[in-house]
Design a protein around this nucleic acid. Structure first.
Lengths: 206, 206
DNA sequence: GTCTATATGGCGATAGAC
DNA sequence: GTCTATCGCCATATAGAC
């Protein structure tokens, strides 16, 4: 490449913008803060991305990819349903433990600009139908209780994501603001959510 | 009162501010928009509440009261646990059906200013310990499966609140953006969540 | 490509007439 | 109590030198 520093700077901006946007959202973030965080000048941010809006959208696409990566693999495997659900819940909560701001960031965006969100979803080729078909197969095979497969997916997502989105409140009310205790609580949920769900839907062999 | 119009105007401002703040949050809202919505002048809003911050805090306190009203009654009743949980879930989802923006609004605030939130909680006299003690009594009596009572409360809240917070996304991905279908889905959850939870925790008499 | 300086506009907040 | 007019600040965005 002719401009040696281009990739480097662009990457610095993207990383800085991700850190700031994820914590403060679109409205709460300042271009100055992003520039400071990247160790460069504010004008340079505009040079690369022109507007705050465009930069934000670039970041959102980038971040969104991180949250929907492993779903395919978990459906396509031919393990028993217990294993599939266990892996799904563990992976999901692990991703969130490493990126605890993600749920709030995504939820804000969900309500900020649904049309833009729809375009991102489309471009990512996300099709929950595969998951529903898998659930329905397990129901017909008598492995799990019959129910609307959408309910099951929503329940899995709710149980995994909500405790991260409501973290400051839960930490305060349930653990007297003890950060370590709450982190441990979230860690434990990898197994307690699994138990909670399996106890509800699994049909025992008779 | 000597100033006849005072209560009337203050109320108009409060209603307008609630509508705007709930939809757009603190950062996204404009004093001008609140004034327009109330059909009065922007300066008048400042006359009554001095700063945007103070107005926002007034609204938040007001709204927060709506979401935590019926918890006491549900714990103190001496019905069997199935009934208690059923009532809790039904009441909670009904409140959210009538105020669908509430979850997003509260979640934003949870992450915006935890200290302020803590002060509101304190002033409301919210003590989850009563709920935990009730859960633990039911566990000791062998009515429900033994587990960390905090897990159970978090699960109930997650299952009730999350589908509202993520509404635009869920509506899009699960119901091809059919608003009525998603509203019906949320209605149904008053019974499906109840089944999901009871199936998981209830111990059958042997 | 990167910087400094500045234009431009929007918003919270106040002054002051009525 | 309610309005018009305006101040002062801050944030996005651009101009222009290097």
């Amino acid at each position: 490449m002719s401009e040696i520093k281009k990739d480097n700077t662009e990457e610095k901006i993207l990383n800085a913008a991700q850190a700031v946007f994820i914590q403060k959202g679109m409205d709460g973030s300042r271009m100055q803060e992003i520039a400071d965080h990247a160790g460069i000048n504010k004008a340079l941010v505009h040079y690369y991305f022109r507007t705050k809006q465009k930069l934000y959208e670039a970041i959102f696409r980038k971040v969104f990819k991180q949250i929907f990566p492993k779903i395919e693999t978990f459906i396509l495997s031919d393990q028993p349903i217990e294993e599939k659900l266990t892996i799904f819940i563990e992976n999901y909560i692990d991703v969130l433990l490493k990126n605890p701001y993600l749920p709030t960031f995504i939820l804000k965006e969900i309500n900020r600009d649904p049309e833009f969100l729809a375009s991102v979803l489309k471009s990512q080729g996300i099709h929950p139908n595969q998951i529903f078909e898998m659930f329905e197969r397990e129901m017909e095979d008598g492995k799990i209780r019959k129910m609307d497969p959408r309910e099951l997916l929503v329940n899995l997502l709710s149980l995994s994501i909500f405790p991260f989105a409501a973290k400051p409140l839960m930490q305060l009310m349930l653990f007297e603001n003890d950060k370590k205790a709450y982190k441990q609580f979230l860690q434990n949920r990898k197994t307690t959510v699994q138990e909670f769900v399996l106890n509800s839907i699994l049909l025992k062999d008779k």
